[in-house]
Computed example of a mutant assay.
Amino acid sequence: MTVGGVGRAAVAPWFGARDLLRSRLSHKQASDLGDAFARFAPLPLQRACERAFDFPIAKIVRGTPLLLIRIPKTASVSLALQVYGQVSHVPHRSAAFYRDADPDFFARATSFAMVRDPWERAASAYRWLRGCGNDLAAPDRRGRAAVAGVDSFERFVLDVLEPMAASGRLRHLDPVLHRQCDYVCDAEGRVIVDHLFRLDHMAEVQAFLAANGVSGGEVRANATERAGGGGQDASQAVLGALGQVYADDAALFGYGPPGCGP
């Protein structure tokens, strides 16, 4: 087998080192390294890395005119499977990451993302963390530590999520808890994704995919994304705390607190 024209045996030490490095880094550290590489590495070096290691932009991503910006806990697995046929080479990366890695590619591609009610997404993320992830992904040790000994969603929001966000450390938590706007906006808060869809308007993204030649299958949210919680049954303290943590998401995507309408 060859990788970008290089024999797999020749790059085997790289794959081993990569896997070891990933096992030692938190999600934030790994993301920061990737972002820094995309932002500061010379473009010829990035293209050479893609030929050898399929990074920073995977071949499968370059091979379709649609660019999915995968936001965790927004049916992104189902979307990736429908658009690309797989998820392993389509990581959760921001639009700014792709723009920095290859401005011409980003300008040519039709980028899109699915966003979600921040209150419901936070509850889904908590369930995912409590369940230690799923068969496709698992929280890192910081993600597991964040929910260890926390016996309710309310305590998680008030004792973990809100204090971390207030101290500017939200990105130290698992990406399932990161702000959605950070995936679709630039550093000045401007949306740089061509199309945004809402999880509660699933038919719209399905029509968009069909119009762009993507067929076969249907976008579906998984069990934790479909389940309720964190909405009507949450206390006012929890709703208020989540409103503070995800204020920019709610404002940008047009969501109001549960019971107040969109």
Rank of each mutant, 00 (worst) to 15 (best):
R155L: 10
R155W: 11
F156S: 00
F156A: 00
F156D: 00
V157G: 04
L158Q: 09
L158M: 15
L158I: 05
D159E: 15
D159S: 13
D159Q: 12
D159H: 03
D159A: 12
L161M: 09
L161S: 06
L161F: 02
E162H: 15
E162S: 15
P163W: 02
P163M: 04
M164A: 14
M164P: 01
M164I: 05
M164Y: 12
A165N: 11
A165Y: 03
A166L: 13
A166I: 09
A166N: 10
S167M: 12
S167E: 15
S167L: 04
G168E: 11
G168D: 13
G168K: 01
L170N: 10
L170K: 09
L170C: 12
R171W: 01
R171Q: 13
H172W: 09
H172Q: 14
H172M: 12
H172Y: 07
H172V: 02
L173C: 08
L173Q: 08
P175N: 13
P175D: 04
V176A: 12
V176C: 13
L177Q: 08
L177N: 06
L177C: 07
L177H: 03
H178G: 02
R179F: 07
R179A: 08
R179K: 12
Q180W: 04
Q180V: 07
Q180S: 12
Q180N: 11
C181W: 03
D182Q: 09
D182P: 05
V184G: 11
V184F: 06
V184P: 04
V184N: 03
C185Y: 10
A187E: 14
A187D: 14
A187C: 11
E188A: 15
E188L: 13
G189F: 01
G189W: 02
R190N: 15
V191F: 02
V191S: 03
I192Q: 11
I192C: 14
V193L: 01
V193Y: 06
D194G: 15
D194T: 13
H195D: 12
H195G: 00
H195K: 08
H195T: 08
H195S: 03
H195L: 00
L196E: 03
L196W: 01
L196D: 04
F197H: 04
R198Y: 06
L199Y: 08
D200I: 05
D200H: 11
H201A: 15
M202I: 09
M202Y: 00
M202K: 14
A203K: 12
A203E: 14
E204D: 14
